[in-house]
């Protein structure tokens, strides 16, 4: 039983929950702002989203471009912290929005969902190392 569950967890696709609200967002629209408290997470189904940092003197720098299947705002929602970057729609996209409380409830109660979130976060952590390598050259 345990072995079966492990395999199932590791092989399951990176899908999240049926409680997503689908939204279509146009180029230039803001999904969330750096420093804002997270209202929920956004599952990017199609299109691209720019993740941006701002400095105190108003300078804005692109961190990376989020692509389909990525979940935006995940770490901020889990940790209950403010967003550490802004997300702006780069090309028209379809996103699934999951409200924060619903997300956290599902995280607590659904093992398969929890493991998928864990895999997504692992992937996010690994992608940061790519960003660092790109920055240093």
């Amino acid at each position: 039983m345990v072995a079966y569950m492990d395999t199932a967890l590791m092989d399951s696709p990176l899908t999240l929950t049926s409680s997503e609200t689908l939204q279509h967002r146009a180029t230039g629209e803001m999904l969330f702002l750096e420093g804002e408290s997270p209202a929920g997470v956004y599952v990017l189904h199609s299109g691209e989203v720019d993740l941006l940092f701002g400095s105190r003197n108003g300078e804005v720098k692109a961190l990376r471009v989020a692509t389909p299947d990525q979940i935006l705002g995940l770490a901020a929602v889990v940790m209950g912290r403010t967003h550490d970057c802004s997300a702006t729609v780069r090309t028209r996209c379809e996103v699934g929005f999951i409200e924060r409380e619903e997300f956290l409830r599902t995280l607590e109660s659904n093992p398969s969902f929890r493991f998928n979130v864990l895999r997504q976060l692992s992937s996010d952590v690994n992608s940061i190392y790519d960003d660092i390598r790109a920055l240093v050259g």
């Binding site: 940092f53 961190l63 940790m79 550490d84 976060l121 660092i132």
Partner: peptide, 21 residues
């Protein structure tokens, strides 16, 4: 583990921000 990786991601973002900005 979810919380630990979220914290790790947040802290790595801070590092990138520091380097990039």
């Amino acid at each position: 583990a979810v919380q630990h990786l979220s914290e790790k991601y947040h802290s790595a973002q801070r590092g990138i921000r520091s380097l990039g900005l």
